[in-house]
Simulated assay, not measured.
Amino acid sequence: MVSFFKQKGQKSKKQKTDEKDQSISKITQNIDSSITTNLDIVKQKTGSSPDIIIRTLKISQNPQIKTTILYVQGLVDNPSVTDFLIESIMKNPHLKEKVLPHEALEVISKDVVSLGGVETVMDWEKLFLSLLSGDSIIFIDGINIALVASTKGGERRSVQEPSTNSVVRGSREGFTESNATNIALVRRIINSPDLWIESMKIGTVTNTDVSIMYINGIAKKGIVEEVKERLKGINIDSILESGYIEQLIEDQVMTPFPTLDHTERPDKVAGGLLEGRVAIFVNGTPFVLLVPALFIQFFQSVEDYYARFDIASSIRFLRISIFLFR
């Protein structure tokens, strides 16, 4: 009796493994030419989540061509999806009656969709990454290629005064949880083409956007390459905050002093970049990392940038003296 249940359990486990392998192989293959098959894969992969919106469109000039738009509710800019995507496809006169599916793909990408950043994808990995980043996906029946339209948006916190590093004299702008907004805040201060940015995805599950920023010609190439190598060497499921990055790339762990600096002030990041440091932006947090960090740097206030050099130096010397003789 015991062996019977054991064999039954092993068989059931094997069946589940085979079904899982078949499911994975089905999802990891290229996009199919059938909209029905593609939608089944999307529903299977996302668990038929209700926030995945599927809109099937009728092209007035050519109802024979089936078109479907997918997007994630809350991650897209709704006016862009409605006005510049859905209505453009449904009412655009370029989609004539005799146009073929592959011709419709080209017409939609070049003439119909009036949004920037329209590109084609053929594999599911890139498609899901774009979909869950706030882009909209366009499927055309009979074509094994999908269109990705940039419609990122949704509710975000506005730029406010930072709750930490408060100053009497200086900027009142603070970083938000959006990488794009944070990078733009620094670009407003440093209007130079030498301000370079490189982005990557870290986290096998979260696929968090991480960007590094530095001024070409001021930051040492060795430091920039070291930062890149350490970030690329991170192998972790999730990055929820810049503190994850800080712990994974720092040199010394057994020390009470921080080895990386963090701030939510764009002016402090700009000052660090002008001194040759590298900034690390992590999407989802208002705290930006600055590397490398020196011990003397933690005796400096952001207001020191705005004071006369003799006054700022005297105040900094006073801070160091209090720390040493206290």
Rank of each mutant, 00 (worst) to 15 (best):
G117E: 07
I140D: 13
V118H: 09
F84S: 14
S80A: 13
K98W: 11
V81I: 15
S130L: 11
S88I: 01
D111N: 10
L95Y: 08
T82D: 13
V121E: 09
P101W: 02
V121G: 02
I138W: 09
H102L: 05
V118T: 09
L131Y: 04
S130Q: 14
T82A: 10
S130A: 15
K126N: 14
E106A: 07
W124L: 08
I138A: 05
L85W: 08
I89E: 01
S136W: 06
S88A: 10
I53W: 03
I54H: 05
S130P: 12
N144I: 02
S80H: 11
D83W: 05
D77P: 02
I86H: 01
L132S: 14
F84V: 03
G117H: 10
V112A: 01
N92Y: 03
T120H: 07
P50L: 10
M90P: 02
D83S: 13
P79C: 06
S49K: 09
E125P: 10
V118K: 06
D141C: 08
M90Q: 15
M90L: 08
K58A: 02
P50W: 08
P50C: 06
Q64P: 01
G134K: 12
S136H: 07
D135H: 14
N78T: 15
W124Q: 11
I52N: 02
N62M: 05
G134S: 14
S136I: 09
P50R: 12
D135A: 10
R55D: 10
D83P: 06
L95V: 12
S133Q: 10
D83C: 07
D111I: 01
S114Y: 10
A104K: 01
I86S: 01
G142D: 13
L132Y: 15
I59A: 00
E97P: 00
I143C: 09
M122N: 14
S109M: 03
G142N: 13
T67G: 03
T120K: 10
L115H: 07
K91S: 05
P50V: 05
E119A: 04
R55A: 07
I138K: 02
A104I: 02
Q61W: 01
Q61G: 15
T82Q: 13
K66Q: 13
L85S: 06
K96M: 12
E125T: 11
L85T: 07
L75S: 11
Y71E: 09
T120S: 14
F139C: 12
I140H: 12
G134I: 09
L129E: 14
T120F: 08
V81L: 11
N78I: 15
L105P: 02
I89G: 01
S133W: 04
L129R: 09
E87S: 07
N144A: 15
P101V: 00
W124F: 15
N62L: 04
K96Q: 14
V76G: 03
P93I: 00
S130N: 15
V121M: 04
V76Y: 14
S114I: 12
R55C: 06
Q73P: 04
V107N: 06
G134F: 14
N144T: 04
K110L: 11
K66E: 12
T68V: 13
I137F: 12
L95T: 13
K126M: 10
S49T: 03
Q64H: 09
K91H: 05
Q64W: 04
